[in-house]
Every structure is written in C-alpha cells, then in structure tokens.
C-alpha cells in the first residue's frame, strides 16, 4: 500500500459536500478504503445470497440418500437406532459410516458397541477397527487389527470344535465366521497399499484356500502378481477367474494388460 494518498477527485469532493449532514467515519473519506469496504460488504452479500439460493432451489436439501454409502448409513443406522443388539447389524452400520467417510462417528460406535455388546465369537468390532484404520490409510494399524480379528474368530471357532457334541456339529455346519475372511481381505488390501506384494499375495492365498471360486479375488491376486513381476502367475489367475465367470470384464482387462488373449 502506498504511503502517498491519491489526489482527491473533483466528484468525490462534490459528493462529500452534498452529504455534509451525514456523519461518516473519517477513514471512509479515503476512496481506497471506501472501495475496499464496499468490496467486503459485497462479498458477504454474495455469499449469503449463495446460501439462500442453495436452500431455495433445493440444491442443499435432498430428502433421501444420494449415494450408496448414504443409503447404507440410513438403512443400517435405522436398525441400530431401533435398539438392535445384533453385532452384525452394528458392524454393517459402522462399515457404512466408514464408507461414507464418517470416521469420528464410526469410532464412537465401535467404542459404544464394545461396551454394550458381546462380540467374542465374531470379533465384529475388531473387524470394524481394521476397516476404520484402512479407511484412514493407517495401514499398519489396519493389519494389526485384522490379525487380531482373525485370531479372535479362529480361537472362538476352535473352542466350539473343542467343546464337541452339538456345539462342534453346529460349528462345523456353520463354518468359521465370514469376518475371518473379511479381515483377510482388509489385510491384503493394506499390504497392497504398502506395496508389500508378497504378504498381500499370502493373504489372497489364504482367502482362496477357503473360497476357491472367488473369481473377483483371483483377479485381485492376479493384479498383485503383475505388480510383483509374476506375469505367468497372473495369467493363470485371470484364466482361473474366467473359468468361474466367463467374460468377466476385469479378468479380460487384466489379460489384455499383460498382452495375452483369452
């Protein structure tokens, strides 16, 4: 800003003379100050008008969910608010919150769930924690939480088997909780983000061992194999995926990427 004030223009002098009865701050006599004040007032007015217009035109007031994540939050949230004590419902709600990037609320519900519900069999809240860390890109913590989930679920399953009798039969019939495999996938994803291809492949191996026909995971493992330089292994996985889902677009895209036709 210049120390020398601009010369007063004739019309401004005249304008001041005309408004001689109206008191005005002396700073406002400076035309530059006056213009800046007008600009500031104008900006505020324009902003407020934008807010009002957004409300009037309905841009800011949708009545229902606009995205899949918002829908999941709404539907799963309603069940939790209704007082559900099903840990799976809580897990679903927390997963929806994480997908909608509401990490703070997700953390609160994990804490609330741990306090009020028993998740010793399914490790629902450990899994939710792994999911939360992965969403927040804290991959090492996500791996730790996923490992904890896997151990908790496996221990609970083994304990049921060890009980023998009906408990054993029921456990064998139900199989291990699907949270075990969800934790594997979170862990694999975290290793992948850390570019630790060997451990990511090891987790996918573990998953495929229990779910042989999971074509989407075969495609994921193939893509990691490409990153690790195992092109032959990737081709094998893509072709295996196509065996389960012929014309799977992702498998075909993968084969195209490594220059192999179906």
């Amino acid at each position: 800003m210049s120390d020398v004030l601009p010369p007063v223009e004739a019309d401004e002098t005249e304008s001041e003379n005309r408004t001689v009865t109206r008191p005005r701050s002396k700073m406002m006599n400076d035309p530059v100050v006056r213009r800046m004040a007008y600009l500031a007032a104008g900006l505020v007015i324009v902003f407020l008008l934008v807010v009002v217009t957004a409300l009037l035109t309905g841009v800011a007031t949708p009545s229902g969910p606009r995205t899949l994540a918002e829908r999941e939050v709404a539907v799963a949230g309603a069940a939790v608010q209704a007082g559900s004590t099903d840990t799976a419902v809580w897990g679903q709600y927390i997963a929806a919150l994480i997908a909608d990037k509401q990490y703070g609320r997700a953390k609160d519900f994990i804490a609330q769930g741990r306090e009020s519900l028993d998740d010793s069999k399914t490790a629902e809240f450990s899994l939710a924690e792994a999911r939360l860390y992965a969403g927040q890109k804290q991959y090492k913590k996500a791996i730790e939480a996923a490992e904890k989930t896997k151990k908790q679920v496996k221990d609970a399953f083994d304990a049921r088997i060890a009980q023998g009798g009906m408990a054993k039969k029921a456990a064998e019939l139900e199989g291990i909780s699907s949270n075990y495999y969800d934790a594997i996938l979170i862990e694999a994803g975290a290793y992948r983000s850390l570019k630790d291809w060997a451990n990511a492949i090891a987790q996918y191996d573990l998953y495929i061992e229990g779910n042989g026909g999971a074509s989407d995971i075969l495609v994921d493992r193939a893509n990691v194999k490409i990153e690790s330089g195992d092109i032959a292994g990737a081709e094998k996985d893509f072709n295996e995926a196509l065996r389960f889902v012929p014309d799977d677009p992702e498998a075909l895209a993968g084969l195209k990427k490594i220059g192999v036709s179906k």
């Binding site: 001041e16 005005r24 002396k26 700073m27 006599n29 400076d30 100050v33």
Partner: peptide, 28 residues
C-alpha cells in the same frame, strides 16, 4: 479531501496517517 462534518479540519498529515491505518486494517 473534504472536511465532512468536523468543525475543526484535521491536518493533511493526520488524515493521511488515519487513512493508511484504515487501508491496512481493511486490507487484512
């Protein structure tokens, strides 16, 4: 610069100082 409603006209230097301050404040 005009005198406005003041009965005593400020000196040009005091007015310039005030305006400089005003410009700085408003600029921020």
């Amino acid at each position: 610069m005009s005198v406005g409603t003041d009965s005593v006209a400020p000196t040009p230097s005091s007015q310039a100082t005030r305006s400089r301050r005003g410009r700085r404040i408003l600029g921020v």
